[in-house]
């Protein structure tokens, strides 16, 4: 019973904080992008345009909800909430500090990989259910992309699991706190695994340079082409939550999570997450987009072999050295 209350309380808190952070992340991204482009970004809504994401949400709530005439109604309506749930659920196992964890599962890594993989399903459902050719092409690309990048993602996530000997996220962070961060020692395993993990996570979250499923300049708006109002907002939010959560997971698995001197654990975790998140947006507003076959080539030619080698090397390292 106690666990249930604990989980519910922290779960609710985390969802609330996540939503607010997502809104702020939207604002941050727009200002950040504007700075990169020698613009100002939102200035008129609230101080420095801080309220811009909220205005967006208020507006999106009021928009007419259109279901295209020949769309598959059930699938079309099912996709956005499913996407949002899949993105948020991952947050359940993230250790924000030594004691802020909604559910400290023994198989945390397995859970987050499984739920993360669920994220492609609503994308494909949306692509199929919209009955729009651009959406279909987007869904098709998303499916191919996610299925491919699932493999390096799992391989990269296996490296910290092997090195620390646990699938429990809190235990992985604890291990790093008592020993070294995985990107520090053994860095020749940690750093490549971290890079592969972040790349695969970006691809899963459909961020540039891997955002080909919704490539505006090619597929109009890809899978979200037919979505209006709040349904679109759910998709939009799911994307940001996904990126945010991916950054948090990356910080926990490789950057030592809440571990750090002077400041409280939560502060360190948030700082690391936001730093990764900022890096993702830096990439987004600098890089161009891959073509889908190049994306596949990158995955199967480089990331997967590298992942396999890393896993084998980690096992050898643990047995002979660690």
């Amino acid at each position: 019973m106690n666990e249930l209350i604990h989980g519910g309380l922290y779960g609710g808190m985390i969802v609330g904080v996540l939503m607010t952070t997502t809104a702020m992340a939207l604002w941050f991204e727009r200002k950040f992008a504007a700075r990169m482009q020698s613009r100002l970004g939102p200035t008129m809504v609230g101080p420095s345009g801080l309220l811009q994401p909220f205005a967006d949400v208020v507006k999106l709530l009021q928009k007419e909800d259109i279901v295209p005439f020949q769309a598959d109604r059930v699938l079309f309506n099912l996709a956005p909430p499913l996407g949002a749930i899949a993105a948020i659920s991952v947050a359940a196992v993230i250790p924000f500090s030594a004691d802020i964890i909604a559910a400290d599962l023994d198989v945390g890594v397995l859970y987050l990989l499984a739920i993360g993989a669920l994220g492609v399903l609503p994308v494909f459902i949306a692509g199929w259910g919209s009955n729009n050719k651009f959406a279909l092409l987007g869904g098709m690309r998303a499916l191919a992309q996610s299925v491919s990048y699932e493999v390096p993602l799992v391989l990269a996530a296996l490296v910290p699991v092997i090195l620390t000997g646990s699938m429990k996220l809190s235990a992985i962070v604890e291990f790093q706190a008592t020993h070294h961060w995985l990107v520090v020692w053994p860095f020749f395993l940690g750093v490549p695994a971290f890079i592969i993990f972040m790349l695969a996570m970006l691809a899963e979250a459909n961020r540039i340079p891997f955002d080909i499923p919704e490539a505006e300049s090619e597929l109009v708006a890809g899978i979200t082409t037919e979505y209006t109002g709040i349904k679109f907002a759910l998709f939009y939010m799911a994307e940001y939550v996904h990126t945010l959560v991916a950054s948090a997971v990356g910080a926990a698995l490789f950057l030592g999570g809440w571990d750090g001197p002077f400041a409280p654990g939560l502060g360190w975790m948030v700082a690391k997450t936001l730093a990764l998140f900022g890096f993702v947006y830096w990439l987004r507003w600098t890089l161009l987009r891959f073509r889908s076959d190049q994306l596949m080539a990158l995955c199967w030619r480089y990331l997967v072999p590298a992942g396999v080698v890393l896993v084998a090397a980690s096992a050898v390292w643990v047995v002979w050295v660690g």
């Binding site: 020698s38 540039i208 505006e216 300049s217 987004r284």
Partner: peptide, 14 residues
């Protein structure tokens, strides 16, 4: 090449 919400826009703005 880079999308209206991505790196392409940065080049465009410059």
């Amino acid at each position: 090449l880079g999308g209206a919400l991505g790196g392409g826009t940065t080049v465009f703005m410059h």
